[in-house]
Amino acid sequence: MVAQPSDATGLRLLVVGASSGIGHAVAESAGKLGARVAVAARRMDLLTKLADSIGGSAFELDVEDGAAITRVVAQAAEALGGLDAVVFTSTVVPFAHIEDTDVTTWVHAFSVNALGANNVLRAALPHLSENGVVLIASSHDVGRPRAGVSAYSASKAALDEILHSWRSEHPELSIVRVGIGPTADTEILRGADRDLLALLFKSWVERGQLPAQMSALQDVANTLLSLVLTAYANPSVVPEAVQLFPRIRNR
């Protein structure tokens, strides 16, 4: 049985990166628990289906487009009557050895993973309620990068520094950074070169970087939603940095 947060009634929530994976699961769970949800991502066919299922609103958004972020966040806030919480899960993971990672790949990773999150937070700032919460999904591997994901790892490290600056300049904000470990049933490997992945997986196993089991997608989504609800209900406390690791169970 999957334990879920108990109640999200009335929470005005925007989930960026909700077309699949963790963001989709967070939006779906929040909607079922009574939250008013707006979802944003690039794949409108998936977003529209999700929004219809939870009675929410869907907005097309490419998080590399700063002007679009400002516009869409404002539209979502208008549709919801303000924002109590924003969850950012948009992520790209380019798989390549570092010597094969070109400038375009570096820029793409930083534009989505670091600047995208920063620009969503920036756009949300004037719309957040007094106890509003912003949760940003990051990686639990920051500081110990695996082979083959240099652009991803560096962009997530940059994201951490960006969030430190936000906290320094805006201590009134509730910003929750969650480092997420290996999670099943996401689309992180979508479009990756299978031959390269085979080599990388071998490297990760040899270095003890590949867990015997992954975290369940719904468990991760429920944990993120619980963090948002806890921070929103307890505004004098900020769970600033949370790390999620797979729990390895004996079979």
Rank of each mutant, 00 (worst) to 15 (best):
A147P: 04
V92G: 12
G34W: 13
F88A: 08
A137V: 15
Q75V: 02
D62P: 01
S53L: 09
I69F: 06
H140I: 10
G31Y: 13
G31R: 05
I69K: 02
G132R: 13
A38K: 01
G34F: 12
S53A: 15
T104E: 15
S111Q: 13
L46N: 02
N119L: 15
G82M: 12
A38V: 01
D45V: 01
L46I: 00
R12V: 05
V120T: 03
T48D: 14
L61Q: 00
D52A: 15
P145N: 11
L33D: 11
G34V: 13
L115W: 12
I69L: 14
V142H: 07
R71N: 00
I136N: 01
F110P: 05
V120L: 00
V63T: 04
H127M: 05
A117M: 03
V86W: 10
M44D: 05
R144A: 15
L47V: 04
R43H: 10
A30C: 12
I22T: 09
A27D: 05
H140D: 15
L121S: 11
V134K: 06
G81C: 11
V72M: 03
S139I: 00
I69Y: 04
W106T: 05
H97Y: 14
L125W: 04
G143H: 03
G23W: 05
Q75F: 01
L33W: 08
I98K: 06
V93T: 14
R144C: 08
L61H: 03
E130M: 08
H24N: 14
T105D: 06
R146L: 12
T70Y: 02
D84G: 12
G56N: 11
V72W: 02
F95T: 09
V15Y: 09
A77K: 08
G116N: 07
A124I: 04
R122V: 01
D102S: 03
V92F: 08
F110T: 11
V26C: 06
D141Y: 11
L125Y: 07
G81Y: 12
V72G: 01
L61W: 00
A85F: 12
S111R: 14
H24V: 03
F110E: 08
D100C: 07
A58I: 01
V133W: 11
F59T: 00
W106R: 10
A137C: 11
V103Y: 09
A41D: 04
A35D: 02
S57Y: 06
R12F: 07
I54R: 08
V16H: 07
M44E: 11
V103F: 12
F95K: 09
G55P: 13
P126H: 10
V16Y: 03
H127G: 02
A27H: 05
A76P: 03
N119Y: 07
V63A: 00
E130F: 06
S90A: 15
L47G: 02
N113I: 06
S57K: 10
T101A: 13
T105M: 14
A114F: 04
G132N: 13
P145G: 09
R144Y: 07
M44W: 02
A114N: 11
A51S: 07
V120R: 01
A40G: 02
A137Y: 01
G82K: 12
V92Y: 11
V134I: 15
V103K: 10
V39Y: 02
G34N: 12
A40K: 00
H24D: 09
V63H: 02
F95H: 14
F88P: 02
